[in-house]
């Protein structure tokens, strides 16, 4: 297998007048976790569906695992696993029945079928719940079952569409531990998420907005390339600081965290810290200003604010 698991060129998908995915060119190296970030409706799911061969691109092309998605989607389907955003196993089947069904649909050899299912059950902590109906599992258990089901046939590439959106933080940590285990075994994973802590854990990131690729790269590189200075302003009257700075053209964006404000300042403003302090002093507002290192949320905000 080549070192590139997913390669797209000018991939585009239109639904009528709406362009869901717009001229997306992308490379995902094999054996990595690649994160898709973007606001709701930015084309993440549509991209995944095209990469799985479920939707035909309107224009452009995609090679997944060296297979042309358009010409031979069925050859691809043996080698990928797709965990849909909505739980798509059967609520009225038990954990074991769901896994057995998936094993049979993938025609796993009878000799190893049972063994693989048992391994997945143990690995994903479902061994004591084999007889429980999937519909009665908790959110975290359901996600683990879904991951167990789509990785049952040891696919080279896994697509996970918002796998942790309805899961508590503890379960999310566990879930990511499983993902790193899978990557260690040689799987490639493409995952969409809204969580910045999850984005930080990816080897590579792609940020989409309105179907367009607006930023791409390793998380660290994205942070370093952030076109903004990040300040933290602490003040007992944080709301007032917010209103004052909102009127300042040097300020790009702000987010309030209790008594603190996370402020993005245009990179072309020299000495941003002093600039903001002076502005607040003029208005006789008590506040401490200091420069902090950017986080991925800043990257995300900067990348998607063009809209």
């Amino acid at each position: 297998m080549s070192a590139i698991a997913i390669h797209t060129e000018h991939l585009t998908r239109r639904f009528g007048a709406v362009t869901a995915v717009d001229d997306l060119s992308l490379d995902v190296p094999a054996g990595t976790i690649h994160g898709f970030l973007g606001p709701n409706g930015c084309g993440k799911s549509t991209t995944i569906r095209m990469l799985c061969g479920l939707l035909r691109p309107t224009a452009g092309s995609a090679r997944v695992l060296d297979v042309d998605v358009q010409s031979d989607p069925e050859a691809l389907k043996r080698r990928i696993g797709y965990m849909t955003q909505k739980f798509s196993l059967y609520d009225d089947l038990s954990v074991l029945e769901n896994l057995t069904f998936m094993a049979e649909v993938h025609s796993l050899p009878r000799a190893t079928r049972q063994q693989r299912i048992m391994r997945q059950l143990t690995r994903f902590g479902l061994a004591r719940r084999t007889a429980q109906l999937a519909g009665t599992l908790s959110g975290g258990q359901r996600q683990r079952l879904a991951l167990a089901a789509v990785s049952l046939h040891a696919p080279d590439l896994l697509f996970l569409d918002e796998p942790t959106s309805a899961v508590d933080p503890q379960s999310r940590r566990e879930f990511w531990d499983f993902l790193f285990e899978l990557v260690d075994e040689g799987h490639t994973i493409l995952v969409t998420t809204h969580f910045m802590d999850e984005a930080e854990r990816c080897h590579g990131l792609t940020i989409l907005d309105h179907g367009r690729l607006v930023a791409s790269g390793e998380p660290r590189a994205l942070l370093e390339a952030l076109p903004a200075t990040v300040l933290e302003v602490s003040s007992p009257v944080a709301r007032r600081v917010h209103d004052l700075l909102a009127a300042d053209p040097a300020v790009i964006d702000m987010a309030q965290l209790g008594t603190r404000l996370h402020v993005l300042v245009r990179p072309d403003v020299p000495a941003a810290e002093q600039h903001v302090s002076a502005r607040l002093l003029e208005a006789a507002v008590e506040a401490q200003v200091r420069q902090v290192s950017p986080n991925l949320e800043d990257v995300f905000v900067m990348a998607t604010r063009g809209s």
Binding site: C52, L54, R78, T84, S88, L89, S107
Partner: peptide, 14 residues
């Protein structure tokens, strides 16, 4: 309707 189909059509079943 229940979303099972999206999973099913990503498998090799004909």
């Amino acid at each position: 309707e229940r979303g099972n189909l999206e999973l099913l059509i990503t498998t090799p079943i004909s």
